[in-house]
Design a protein around this nucleic acid. Structure first.
Lengths: 337, 337
DNA sequence: TCACTCTTTTGAAACGCTTCAATAACGACT
DNA sequence: AGTCGTTATTGAAGCGTTTCAAAAGAGTGA
């Protein structure tokens, strides 16, 4: 059906090798020949077959990106950064969302491996990283995004989540809040547990302060709403005076539930802080205080590491890059602001 | 480096054909042989090479999806719907964002064609659809998403945007607003112009009502802010009393500018209505009234059409499916609500 | 024992591309 | 005229699959 390089060669009266050269290194082909071949390509509407090209080359010209949630603006920004950086170097980014499911993560990675991607960027759900080791062994560089590699065995681009947790908790404590509820999960996700730990450490140093963890099944708006309803249902004396949500989606869900039911005023009755600082956080009913992560930059940097690791081959040096999170104060914690 | 089917065959003491059969139609292979081959696969860590597979098959097992903006939650929801439906049938979805640029759209489509995707879903920026015709001629089915095919030459899944425009305008007029500003663009995008036309037709029937179009360069929050600043700068007597934004991102930008500068109250001084009803619209500072489009369903339905068109081959019947938009009233138009 | 099924397995032929050693063409210089 | 460089082109090999006609086994009944 579709024209092949062979058809083009026949049409232009040259050999297939020459057509291939016109496609890939036109500078080594005589100008007249280039013209004739180009003309034939036009004529036949020839389009290169990527599968054949890759088969020959042995590796694809795409990177794979696995994120926790394709509908989370934070990850979309991250993907955007990755894509931009990749395009500059002639690469393409394939994205898959694991939706917090290890099985789904597994099958996405399997797909990437079958595709012989040039590298994998991943924000893992699965605590077990053996599949990633396997990938590397198969010659596919792996870079962790939005989470560090505790034993430095993988390159990574992350934000110091423990510090982020500390920043959030400290902010709430400085405002005089003492009964903090942490909303987030699954706790198996390192980013989440790091944030809890950071918060816990700060709370522990403050007398009279407590931190209660309410684990969610996902980092979504819906889960936020669910937990908020639980909180609303609590008797007033057992109710927290501040909520630290593991990400802005959860924070928005929490906020919606509080505002809609009109049961609790933010921040008067209960302060709220999120994480990520997605664009929508600032536009919320009550603009949400958040701990900012530079999503676009993380994505771009990660692709950079991938490129250099791909270049260097098997014995590349692993590099851990860590950004510092930044507090963005808004009305959800400081009423007047 | 990586093990091939040939290595597996040697290890298991069978021919390559048999290994392939174990992989693809295990039921025709003797149980003992299957076991031996599976064992060898495990042993060698063999992973199928997708490029070779596709080369042989002639077509990929992925669909391509081209959207206007990968960071717009509406399109992410659409993509999500598409992906879910596709996975059920063993397909994968590749996504690219045209960012309102015809060139970028062109190059994404080219990439998809080189990839020999099994079909293309597209929300086109380019008014010139010849490239899509070319694709179809090359045997790749094409389905338009979020926009109809006026001459019925393509299958499509859309929402009646003219009606959506009417609904929005009618709502504003019923609230007594008369000076409406339409914010959106580029007007070359059919969804946008349809919405303008719908609104215009309703406004024309109402004496004393006017509609002024303010074209944007993109459908983004930033552009919304820019236009809002223009509006704020207007002398009070030339200022509109309502804004109809072509999508919720613009509406959020507009809202942010109004609220932050504190110059105009929504909806008292100026009413605001958006389009798409993305999740974040309801969580905005002032919850935004919007015209809802069923994003997830559109994506899923479109993949359905693609599947049946791919099945049917060249002379498939084109089908145009049109959803009806739905008004969702919130505080940005009706203060008390 | 032979002819005939029915089930398994085999091995070679593509699929469309890139690469690379070999060849051809053509002046320029001896 | 012959030799040497340069520059342009050729054509075959091979990447890892799948497919398919053919071969090989294994029963069965005569």
């Amino acid at each position: 059906m579709a024209a092949s390089i062979r058809d083009v060669a026949r049409e232009a009266g040259v050999s297939v090798g020459t057509v291939s050269n016109v496609l890939n290194r036109p500078e080594i082909v005589a100008a007249g020949t280039v013209a004739r071949v180009t003309q034939a390509i036009e004529q036949l509407g020839f389009v290169r077959n990527d599968a054949a090209r890759q088969l020959r080359a042995g590796r694809s010209t795409s990177f794979g990106l696995v994120v926790l949630d394709t509908r989370n603006p934070f990850f979309m920004d991250l993907a955007h950064g990755a894509q931009r950086r990749a395009i500059d170097d002639g690469y393409t980014v394939l994205m898959g969302g694991s939706d917090d499911s290890p099985q789904r993560e597994h099958s996405i990675l399997e797909m990437f491996e079958e595709h012989r991607v040039a590298g994998v960027l991943i924000s893992p759900v699965d605590t077990d990283l053996t599949q990633l080791w396997r990938l590397r062994q198969a010659g596919i560089p792996v870079v962790l995004v939005d989470r560090g590699s505790s034993d430095r065995s993988f390159s990574s681009v992350s934000v110091d989540d423990v510090e982020g947790g500390r920043i959030a908790a400290r902010h709430l404590l400085e405002l005089g809040r003492r009964r903090i509820a942490f909303v987030g999960g699954p706790l198996g996700i390192k980013q989440v547990s790091d944030r809890v730990n950071g918060a816990t450490s700060v709370v522990a140093e403050t007398s009279g302060a407590t931190l209660e963890v309410r684990e969610t099944r996902a980092l979504s708006v819906l889960e936020g709403r669910r937990i908020a309803e639980e909180i609303i249902a609590l008797p007033a004396d057992r109710r927290p005076d501040a909520v630290f949500a593991a990400n802005d989606l959860l924070a928005m869900g929490v906020l919606q539930a509080f505002v809609m039911t009109g049961s609790l005023r933010v921040p008067e009755d209960i302060a709220l802080i999120g994480y990520d600082d997605i664009d929508f956080a600032s536009a919320a009913v009550v603009p949400i205080t958040s701990v900012r992560q530079p999503a676009v930059e993380i994505g771009a940097t990660a692709v950079g590491l991938l490129l250099s690791e791909a270049q260097a081959g098997a014995d590349a040096t692993r590099e851990q890059i860590e950004f510092t999170p930044e507090l963005v104060v808004r009305a959800s914690t400081v009423g007047g602001a």
